[in-house]
Design a protein around this nucleic acid. Structure first.
Lengths: 229, 229
DNA sequence: AATAGGAACTGATAAATGTCATGTTTTTTC
DNA sequence: GAAAAAACATGACATTTATCAGTTCCTATT
C-alpha cells in the first residue's frame, strides 16, 4: 500500500501541515500516487483540474504556450510544492501546462478534499493564502525582470536561481539540468540567443559546461552582471 | 462623520462582502478615509504597511522601480479593489509602490482588523484567496505577454484593456487617461517607442487622439493585431 | 560499434527596440 | 494670459534580439 500522508515529510514544506489529523487522514484516503516520466504532462493548459498535485520527487515546469508556438515557463515546481491550487480555488480551467522535467512522483489529491478543508479550516486557508501571496510576489518580480533586464542579465539570474533553489551535484554542476530550450523559455528569449550567451559566459570563464550540464564558476561576477555592471 | 462600511456600495465588489455584520462594524470603527492627490503615493516600495487600502474613487498604479531608473507598472487598481493585501498577509514589507493616477479617495483599514478576521472567518479568507488566485493568473498572463508579444501588440492590448476595464467618456476617449510614460511603463518599453507606435496607430486610423487623450476607432483591428495579424 | 535523431552550436542577416538629441505642443503656475 | 515646465513627438543612429540556414556534437537505441 501507499505511505500515509501523516508520515510524509514532504507536507512539512507546504500548506498541508496546517491540516488537522482528521483532515490529513481524509487526504490520505482519497489521494492517489502517480509516477510521471520525464517529458510527460501532469496536465495541459485549458484542462479542468479535479484536484491538486503534491510533488514528492522531481521537478515540473509550469508553462504557457503562445500563438507563435513558443512556451513561456512561469515557474519551476519541486519537492514539497503543490501544483494546481490556483485553478482549483478559482474554479477555472488551468491557464498553464505542467510538464515533468525529470521523472516525478506526485500525490494527486481530489478537489473535494481540498475545497472542503478550505471551507472548514481557516488556518489551512490562511496558509494557502500565504503561499499564494508569495507566488504573486515572485510573479511580480518576474514581470519586472523580463521587462527591464537584458537577456544576458536574465540568464545570469536564472543560473543563480537554479543554484540557490536546486543546488549543485558532486561535480559542481547545477543539480537541475535544463535543456537550452527550457532555459530560453524560462528567460523568455529565442533558443539560439540563449545558446550564444551561454557560450559567451563560458568564454569569459563565468561558467563551465559538460554536454548540457552547466556549472557556475564565478558566482560573484554573475551576480554583478545581473545588477548591471 | 464618515459613512459606514455597512452602507458602502464599494464593498460589494471586493472581499469585504464576506464579512459578518459585526466584523464590518469593526472595520467601520477602525477605518480612516483619506484623499490622495494625483501623483501622490499611497505607499512606496519597501514600506511596512499597517493596513490595506480600499479604493472608493480614482485609480492607483502599482509599480516597481528597477535599478536603471525605469518603473514597471504591474497593476492598475480602481474602485472596489483592495490594495496592500499581499504584504499584510505575507507579513513582509511591500514590493511595490502605489501612486495615484488621478485624485483618489481611499479607506485605510488597519492590519489588525484584517488579520483578526482572516483568522476567524473562513469565508472571508477564502474570498481573499479567490481574489489573489485571480491576480496571480493575471500576473502569469502579463509575463507571457511581455515575453512573447511585440511592443506594438502589447500597446494594442493595453488600449483594449483600458477600454474594457475603465470604459470611455462621452466623447469616445478612454475614460482613464494615462501619460505616454505610464503607457510605456505598463507595457514595459521605452517612452519614445510607445509614442512612435501610438503615432503609427493614429496614422493607420486605429485610434484618434486629442492631447494626451486616446480614443479607439477600430477595436476589431486592434484585437487582430494583438493576435498577430 | 554503427547509426539515427535530436540537441547544441555558429554565422550571416534582418527586424525590433532603445538611446540621444532636439524641436514642438500641452499643461501648469504665477 | 504669459512664462515656465512638463509632456509629447520625431529623426538619426546604436544596440539588442530574432530568424534562417546550416554544421557538429551527444546520446540513446539496435
Amino acid at each position: 500500500m501507499e505511505s500515509r500522508c501523516e508520515n510524509c515529510i514532504i507536507r512539512q514544506f507546504n500548506s498541508l501541515r496546517a491540516m488537522s489529523k482528521e483532515e490529513l487522514n481524509k487526504v490520505s484516503d482519497t489521494k492517489t500516487t502517480k509516477k510521471i516520466k520525464k517529458g510527460q504532462p501532469l496536465f495541459q493548459e485549458g484542462d479542468k483540474l479535479n484536484g491538486v498535485y503534491c510533488v514528492r520527487n522531481g521537478v515540473s515546469k509550469l508553462s504557457k504556450l503562445s500563438s507563435n508556438g513558443k512556451d513561456q515557463i512561469v515557474k519551476l515546481a519541486t519537492k514539497g510544492e503543490v501544483i494546481g491550487q490556483r485553478s482549483v480555488i478559482a474554479e477555472e480551467s488551468t491557464n498553464l501546462s505542467a510538464i515533468a522535467i525529470n521523472d516525478m512522483e506526485v500525490c494527486f489529491i481530489p478537489k473535494e478534499t481540498i475545497v472542503h478543508t478550505l471551507q472548514k479550516n481557516p488556518n489551512f486557508t490562511l496558509e494557502v493564502l500565504r503561499h499564494m501571496a508569495h507566488d504573486l510576489k515572485e510573479a511580480d518580480d518576474v514581470i519586472v525582470n523580463i521587462s527591464q533586464k537584458t537577456v544576458k542579465q536574465r540568464i545570469a539570474e536564472a543560473f543563480l536561481y537554479l543554484k540557490n533553489n536546486f543546488g549543485e551535484d558532486e561535480e559542481g554542476f547545477l543539480a537541475l539540468t535544463l535543456s537550452r530550450e527550457d532555459i530560453s523559455n524560462v528567460v523568455g528569449t529565442a533558443t539560439e540567443s540563449a545558446i550564444r550567451i551561454i557560450s559567451d559566459f563560458k568564454k569569459k570563464g563565468l561558467i563551465h559546461t559538460s554536454g548540457k550540464r552547466i556549472g557556475i564558476k564565478e558566482e560573484r561576477k554573475l551576480a554583478e552582471l545581473v545588477e548591471g555592471f
